[in-house]
Nucleic acid binder design. Structure first.
Lengths: 158, 158
DNA sequence: CTATTACCGACAGAACCACTCGGATTTTTT
DNA sequence: AAAAAATCCGAGTGGTTCTGTCGGTAATAG
């Protein structure tokens, strides 16, 4: 388990997808502009998310990314492990005899804590965020706006 | 909230201190050898832990580090924030009008998740690890060993 | 006095992060 | 058919963090 800005970017971007899931795919350009992350960097993150079956891309104009599974089946732990594939285990990989047989029981304790943390984050789904009343309200307003712009201007010109 | 190898090292080292707290200070050389971390790197970590009032150093032969507070008053969150002082907030620091006023509500959601994570780790104390029966058993055996070596050889020669 | 330990700062290589650039491919619109 | 919008792809880069080395000073126990 590891937690860096990379993971945060991935999680917030996925929240964005979950919120606007109903009106179709969201472009990386939108997320880039909205969240202040570079487009190319987002592309790299989404390549990993796609390989892990969390999102699917839609090419061409009007395309973008959408969730590959219902939002209540995607957990925060899923997202973080998808982009931070570095498992980064203890120094004495598996072989527990790192020092006089039993000295390094702290490694066991850490593994236990790490597992607790994973379980915690695995219990939090994207749906839990997207279904909040205040989120629904804002999302609906934005969706209308986006639809209007789809007809008049291009969407990203908003 | 951030979680890297640095934080893991700090937490496992602090677990070590908590486990052997009863027999006095633990030297960094011991932790270094036991956990496979370089001595100088440990020194850097413990300088931060000391500045945050989590440990106190004892100089001279027989010295080392010991917990500055009872183990049930030191949480995992305390340790991690002590060594990873990087708070690393959202891109639009505080000013919520990062994009068209309300677009970036994902930042709010992330802040909420981050807070949940902190609370979770803040609920886990060193004592919860040190007080486990299996830990107690191993620690007692090790302590005896260390005491014996204190008289016959030097402690690190074990 | 000597050995042991914490303390301190500078530095250096390696790895990783965040990002850029230049393209190629697919699809919709015109 | 042409143009534009979007995903895809890989190479490369500057900066930071990680990990560790080295050399030294200060305090303390025996």
């Amino acid at each position: 388990m590891k937690l860096s800005t990379k993971g945060r970017y991935a999680v917030t971007a996925m929240m964005d997808l979950a919120i606007h899931d109903r009106i179709g795919p969201v472009t990386l350009a939108d997320i880039s502009q909205c969240q202040g992350i570079s487009l190319s960097y987002l592309e790299q993150l989404f390549a990993k998310l796609r390989k892990h079956g969390l999102v699917e891309g839609v090419r061409g104009p009007g395309g973008g990314y959408r969730l590959a599974k219902p939002a209540d089946r995607i957990t925060v732990a899923n997202i973080i492990t998808a982009v931070d594939e570095n498992v980064d285990v203890t120094r004495c990989q598996g072989n527990e005899d790192c020092q006089q047989g039993d000295r390094c029981l702290t490694h066991e304790l850490w593994k236990d804590l790490s597992q607790q943390l994973y379980s915690f984050l695995d219990g939090i789904t994207l749906a839990q965020f997207a279904n909040r009343p205040e989120v629904q309200a804002v999302a609906r307003r934005q969706d209308r706006e986006i639809n209007r712009h789809h007809f008049i201007f291009s969407r990203t010109a908003a």
